[in-house]
Design a binder for these strands. Structure first.
Lengths: 357, 357
DNA sequence: TCATCATAAGAAACCGGTTTCAAATGTATA
DNA sequence: TATACATTTGAAACCGGTTTCTTATGATGA
């Protein structure tokens, strides 16, 4: 019943347009890409037909001919994590602004997926690859992995959020040292001296750096490093935060503040504290990293480190394109974190005397 | 220093392999696609070269030649929402199992983005498009939108999670009626009779159906419908849950249970209740939809409706491929919800007498 | 009016695969 | 050994664009 468009089944091509406009395909292409002048009357006729048929040039053919797809592949550890989701959306937005498209694949934390998906991105001839998390965030990466990345980099530039010694790939990183400095300054300023660290694995670069900075700042403030306040390596999830807080509370209760490795872990920490009848922030301050929407939803709302995803995404895309176009860029760019203070952190209520509960 | 692979700069092609193996490109293609028999010794030689160079056939060229890309485009409302993220990951997994790839675009809830991205998917010659949320979930869709979808459907099948009257597109939907039935049965069984509804917009099909079922079940249980217990149209976010609960509590406090439209809204509801000193579940039961990770993190943990994302994703992909391959399939498939009971819902402690706080 | 030069547009090659068609090779049968 | 038939294989066309090269057209100046 609907008025049938003439693109019955098969999609229409540049040749169809050319025929109807009585010009050669080359001319249609020139109008499409605006790569050369075309006599106004022909241009108009062609543009009218493009509009009439809602013609969309085949991106596959375009990519084949161009050897440039204007597509950037993004490999994320897990898009269900709001941290990566936010960063991905930021990349998507930034890419759009400069006429690029991003395609996303999830590695789900498995190295074999990572390798397989890198291969898929190569097949698809993306112009660059951005790695969000994954193996490239490790403190030291395996020789095999480095070799794989190096082979890919012989044809496609790779940008990571960590670092990859032994490769020439570019990196955009958050200044983890600075982020720990912000939290520690905040807590020390509130009078806290026994500060616990919950969640994370120190074989991840960003976590390692935080740990280092934590120790450094203790020393600078004449506070003895206390290994019992640092939870052993764990994960970055709710369960880890909950379990590690429980375990620590079973051994001691003299800390007055907790730094959780991210919002997920912080939620677990808060649940544990809650179940122990420990009030936040009166009895214990809780702060975290990432400032996802969970920071706002927590009760009380969480003091957290914000990364400015918009800027982060823009820098990732920007760097990728700079490398694609062969413009030289510094191999490492930093994103500056900021602290967002909310109600989960408050003045230390404990004297030098001891615990309050 | 690394031993240089011979794919200096340019990626190697089927022709390079053919030349070195002293066969024609056709033969290499046959080995690649396993589409015809090839003499074992040649096959072996070719396979050795493919491995040696880690050769990856150009997906663009493949797609051009095949007019089949084995790619399904997914248009999600917002991947930062764990609901869509989980569903997307489920699709990704299901697609992988059947040799397909999915590509994701975010509409961020804007119709103009949706239209633009649909166009991009057409350009990329995806074999099918899956819409997660967006305009296709509306109770009634605009004529222009229907026309756009119809035009796309003349070349690419579209599968939606809502419904689209006036198009022939397939749908995979959650049985919203059933999901409300499960929650109501649960609450009624616990003795609740004044049950509030928070969050959501009734111009969204799934929300409308829940509302209808809510009214129906009240009637079946001889409970008078009370408009004051149903919050006006709002959003699906934390802020809406918080605000609407606050507003309702300002007017009345006689309800004993709240059904939130999703976990985000439920978190807002819980915050509001918390600030009013209303205990969960002793004073008020709270239940919700989606069963995302927030259900587990809430304090107390949330009773929520689980959708089995794995199954949902599989059905979406399955339907898409069935349509691509021209196998007839029922136009509508359902996903059955289940209730996960946790600590946020408990027996109604209020007699017919009145409120408890 | 004719030579000169800039501009516009078409023909054809190319990107890297797949597939059809026909030819070549090999095997089985008479 | 000749014939028929099944396997393998290569040549060439094709998918739908872009781009180089060449030619045709139009404008400018002498």
């Amino acid at each position: 019943m609907l008025p049938q468009k003439s693109n019955e089944g098969k999609a229409i091509t540049i040749y169809d347009i050319a025929k109807e406009a009585e010009v050669s395909p080359s001319t249609v292409s020139r109008v499409l890409t605006n790569s050369a002048r075309v006599r106004p009357e022909k241009r108009q006729k062609i543009e009218a037909l493009i509009a009439k048929y809602n013609f969309k040039p085949n991106a596959l053919a375009k990519g084949l001919a161009d050897t440039r797809t204007r597509t950037i592949g993004v490999l994320a550890a897990d898009i269900r994590n709001p941290y990566y989701a936010s960063l991905f959306v930021a990349c998507e937005q930034a890419a759009k602004e400069v006429g690029y498209t991003v395609v996303l694949y999830n590695t789900l934390g498995k190295t074999e997926n990572e390798v397989e998906l890198l291969g898929k991105l190569q097949e698809q001839k993306v112009d660059a690859i951005i790695q969000l998390g994954g193996r490239a965030d490790d403190l030291v990466s395996s020789a095999e992995y480095v070799e794989i990345i190096n082979e890919i980099m012989s044809s496609i530039p790779v940008v990571v959020t960590g670092k990859l010694d032994g490769t020439r790939c570019h990196a955009v990183r958050i200044d983890s040292m600075k982020s720990m400095e912000l939290l520690m300054e905040h807590l020390l300023g509130l009078g806290h001296r026994r500060i616990a660290l919950i969640g994370g694995r120190r074989n991840v670069l960003a976590t390692f750096e935080k740990y280092q900075k934590y120790k450094l700042m203790l020393k600078e403030n004449m506070i003895a490093y206390d290994d019992g306040l640092v939870a052993p390596d764990g994960g970055y999830d709710f369960e880890t935060g909950y379990r590690q807080m429980n375990e620590m509370l079973a051994k001691r209760t003299d800390m007055t503040a907790v730094i959780a490795i991210n919002d997920f872990a912080a939620m677990g920490v808060m649940k544990s504290l809650n179940e122990h009848g420990i009030r936040i922030p009166e009895d214990m301050s809780v702060v975290s990293y990432d400032n996802t929407y969970m920071s706002e939803m927590a009760m009380p709302r969480l003091t957290s480190i914000d990364y400015n995803f918009g800027e982060y995404g823009r820098k990732l895309i920007d760097t990728s394109i700079a490398v694609i176009e062969g413009r030289k860029k510094d191999n490492l760019r930093m994103v500056m974190p900021a602290i967002v203070v909310r109600e989960s952190s408050g003045p230390c209520r404990v004297g030098a005397l001891g615990k309050s509960f």
